[in-house]
Write a protein that binds this DNA or RNA. Structure first.
Lengths: 236, 236
DNA sequence: ACCTGAACACCGTTCAAGT
DNA sequence: ACCTGAACACCGTTCAAGT
């Protein structure tokens, strides 16, 4: 049972960390095997492979070759794991435009990359939106870069946070949209009760460029440009 | 096989279901006790009382005085229950402006009530955003009213759905924001690394009217007006 | 301090048996 | 058709015991 035959997926007892890993006995190991960094990396890997429904404390522990309970020496809940992941992702949002491009173009680049990142991580959105930024260094760094760009464009300091929040709200909402099915607005049998809406849904794909853009992309660009126009009264 | 301890539960005493209800035996009851309507109402009641974490299939069944498995004769999953709730809520979004007010004012009223409804039901947002509208009658009715209003304001049919989606994205994102803690942007120990952002957060509450508005409200109004201005090029 | 292993208190869902 | 009751296959989390 302890022997490492390479054909067994080994789903029985609990070891099963993939290929034959030496088993650790109970007790404090000579050097800590876990830490925020390894946990974050493993979580990201798991999400990439199995999606968010595959991100369980058990699966995470298995990937790290520890018992599930060992994780609780480093995080106090699964929510903590999500926060680690979130901050990591925030670091990959593109803020480069805010140092080398005009305000509108900088916001465009930032908003698009922000949406793209979280479109693949929608389960984090309800967590982020309510998450105090304290102790999320990459997140704070992102906000600092954005704020700097707004100030450079002439925005008064007291209006910047509201503007960022408004843009973020639109970005988060749009991120959900990306994973919506193509027929999301198909009224089905209810079409007869909603003739105007049904016609509008059908007209949506008419007269667009070729190849036709993703519906979620055209709605996002429309909203983004509208927001930029509306907000643009302040900056430039 | 266990030995048959089999005592009738009610003879033992405990009225488990809470209110002293007569216990139903197994077998088809003379009249169906459940149905989409009763299930929806009970779910809403449960959510109002205990929040979404209190909405479990067990709790729902208990409130309806049935076994949890009985629910599956009427819905095929918990997701189905959420869809019932969602459609019910959509019916309470205010679309009245689209028949008796100018476009901008109509969108304002609609957007505010839409946000307010889902601010108290944020767990539904990830479900809605990906939910085909088929067989959600109140939802379709809402879209029909909105579409009618856009058409009346002179919008070309092929641009309406994108505009609605853009507005909805902003509304959903903003709904999350409502439940964010007041100190969400407090950088804590990271303040030194983000002086501009920290200053912007502090300046946010300066120079506002009295009493100061909820931060989430001022961001929402700013975003909504910007969107209306930007989109307003089409309608009026 | 930091790990294991065995609980604990839940979930949503399935299914045979009953009427 | 539509209910009950007993499973089933999970969850996240806690905690004593071990080093």
């Amino acid at each position: 049972m302890e022997n490492a035959t390479q054909t067994t997926p080994e789903s029985g007892g609990g070891a099963g960390a993939g290929a034959g890993q030496a088993k650790r006995r109970a007790g404090r190991p000579p050097h800590a095997v876990l830490g925020p960094d390894r946990i974050t990396k493993a979580a990201l890997k798991l999400i990439a492979r199995d999606g968010y429904k595959g991100l369980t404390m058990s699966a995470l522990a298995r990937m790290l070759s520890v018992a599930p309970s060992a994780l609780y020496n480093h995080v106090s809940s699964k929510r903590d794991v999500l926060l680690l992941v979130e901050d990591q992702l925030m670091g990959s949002v593109d803020v480069s435009g805010f140092t080398n491009a005009p305000w509108k173009e900088a916001v465009r680049r930032w908003a698009r990359s922000y949406r793209d990142v979280f479109a693949r991580h929608t389960p984090l959105i309800p967590v982020i939106a309510v998450l105090p930024v304290t102790n999320a260094p990459a997140t704070v760094r992102m906000y600092e870069a954005v704020t700097a760009g707004f100030l450079a464009a002439g925005w008064p300091a007291e209006e910047i946070v509201d503007a960022i929040v408004a843009l973020e709200s639109f970005i988060f909402g749009s991120a959900f949209d990306v994973s919506a099915p193509a027929d999301i607005f198909d009224p089905g049998e209810l079409a007869a009760d909603a003739p105007l809406f049904t016609a509008a849904v059908e007209a949506r794909s008419q007269g667009k460029s070729w190849p036709p853009p993703q519906p979620s992309d055209s709605a996002f660009e429309l909203g983004l440009e509208s927001l930029l126009t509306g907000l643009g009264r302040r900056g430039n």
